[in-house]
Design a protein around this nucleic acid. Structure first.
Length: 331
RNA sequence: GCUGAGGUAGCCAAGGUGGUCACGGCGGAGGUCUGAAAAACCCCAGAUGUCAGUUCGACUCUGACCCUCAGCA
């Protein structure tokens, strides 16, 4: 019981990651750290499924790099062991938030929880965040939002030409999917334009596949010895996935999803804000639009939401299943 | 019953003077992923209502039949 331990729980959407995390928290004296790119946004509560008991309060602890760090208590009533839940409500829906930001916030929290002799339980479906947390991200080029904004107007063709010009080798190393992907092209241009020469991975220069075996989180924490329990939850078949998502969407609609969107719009948030580019919000905004050239019914909105949620769940698994360290559990 | 419109993949849907068996979108399968990731992107598989005729050749023309929709009665 002396060895330090961290638990990572990820997996497909709607598999019950949070409830597993809570169970673990009870058993192992744990605190939860969310790894969810949507629950990191303030005001996005019902649709992103922040399962907080009524009347929960956000306890802000500090402000770091412009992000709010704080926690919720899982139980509203004071009880003996009341685990904290961190990294909800970090940023405003208008703000951008990156996997790097996530890592920079999560690492000190993990350390702190370990120092208290507790077990950090990192839980969430944003595998990209976990990927960067657990493994290495080997570039040192931060996002340049001004450049990105400027390049957002360019066509894919133009972006390709630009990259080919400033970094032909990198362009050649891209696969077809990335070559057609404006976001990825912009990122590559951003890296290539950076004044500091980036420490590029071999995969980007030689095309060699990246090795994904060794979890480097220990080194990042400065710990020699750390037990990592890394669990992934997935659906055992398509039916259970569809069923779970159907129930989830209906429940969220019943608990006021539409009102949540209306309020956000009233507060001045727009569909183009980073936080609202999220499944559920998109479909409801489309449904609420009065001047929509092709209006959809409530039922269609619900269907589309469900479909996009399925597709997301499948994409998640496609990405995650390449990680050899995940111990899968079916639900 | 009459008149009009129409039947193209699971859904929506384009098409042409008859001649590489057919544009797309959605959905479905598979995939990409190194500081926007619930994002963005790649890729694959699916079709001409039925029967007969004209023709070297029909999804496209003709006829019959079956079905759908609108209007009339």
């Amino acid at each position: 019981m002396n060895q330090k331990k961290i638990i990572i729980i990820t997996g497909q959407t709607a598999t019950g990651k949070t409830s597993l995390a809570l169970k673990k928290a009870r058993l192992e004296n744990g605190e939860l750290i969310s790894a969810d790119s949507r629950q990191a946004y303030k005001h996005l509560d019902i649709i992103t499924g922040k399962d907080l008991p009524l009347g929960s309060k956000f306890h802000k602890v500090e402000e770091k790099n412009g992000f709010d760090i704080g926690y919720y208590l899982i139980n509203p009533e004071p009880i003996t062991h009341n685990p904290k839940l961190w990294l909800y409500d970090i940023v405003d829906p208008k703000q951008y938030f990156s996997s790097f930001d996530y890592e920079s916030l999560a690492i000190p929290l993990i350390k702190q929880i370990l120092d208290q002799g507790k077990t950090p339980i990192v839980v969430g479906g944003t595998y990209f965040y976990l990927y960067n947390l657990l493994y290495d991200i080997d570039t040192n080029v931060p996002p340049n939002w001004e450049l990105r904004k400027e390049l957002d107007n360019k066509s894919v063709e133009q972006l390709q030409q630009m990259l080919k010009k400033i970094n032909p080798k990198l362009f050649e190393s891209l696969n077809e999917s990335d070559r057609q992907n404006p976001r990825r092209l912009i990122r590559k241009i951003e890296i290539s334009k950076a004044t500091e020469p980036p420490r590029l991975r071999r995969s980007e220069t030689t095309g060699e596949p990246r090795r994904l075996n060794e979890i480097t989180l220990k080194e990042k924490l400065g710990l020699k010895d750390l037990e990592v329990e890394y669990i992934g939850l997935r659906f055992k078949n398509k039916d259970s996935l569809h069923e779970a998502i159907k129930i989830r969407v209906k429940e969220r609609l019943k608990s006021g999803a539409i009102e949540e969107v209306k309020n956000l719009l009233k507060m001045g948030y727009k569909e183009t804000d980073p936080g609202l580019k999220t499944i559920g919000y998109r479909e409801i905004i489309k449904y609420l639009k009065t001047h929509n050239p092709s209006p959809i019914t409530h039922n269609q909105m619900s269907q589309e939401w469900q479909i996009h949620e399925h597709q997301y769940a499948k994409r998640q698994y496609t990405f995650m299943k390449k990680d050899p360290n995940i111990k899968w559990k079916e639900v």
